[in-house]
Amino acid sequence: MQPVNEMELKFLSKSNNESFARVAAAAFVSQLDPTLEEMADIKTAVSEAVTNAIIHGYENKVGFVTMRCSLYADSVEISISDEGMGIENIELARQPLYTSKPEMERSGMGFTVMENFMDRVEVISQLNSGTTIKMYKTFKSLKNKN
């Protein structure tokens, strides 16, 4: 299926870009006119993936985070990539409450939140070369309209 619109955004792994990324994603998705709750779901999932890229992918180093959004008639695909350290064990990383940084007061719930707020989450990662998170959501509020 061909997307109706696409965008790509690249920004530094600085924590003030977390709010920038989620607001940008929500603004782009708003073209489809989903509900406020569906927009809030997108914002939260984007925030989780971008925060992970910054604190885990790049740790204290600076690098670029790339966000891509493809809009379809009643759905969205969002991918968030870093060129950081990568994930050694994806299955373990996705488990609720698993965190590699408990000393930083992380709770290990980021992936669980993404999975709950989106329909599907894919993790593609290679050690020492980076991670891409792909997330999909169909807007139920729009499905009935079309």
């Binding site: 709010s19 989620r22 914002k43 939260t44 925030s47 989780e48 925060t51 930083m104 007061e105 992380r106 709770s107 719930m109 980021g110 939140v113």
Partner: peptide, 13 residues
Amino acid sequence: TFMDSSGIGVILG
């Protein structure tokens, strides 16, 4: 106005 999983760590801490 917004919270993600970072909030869980803050409250638990």
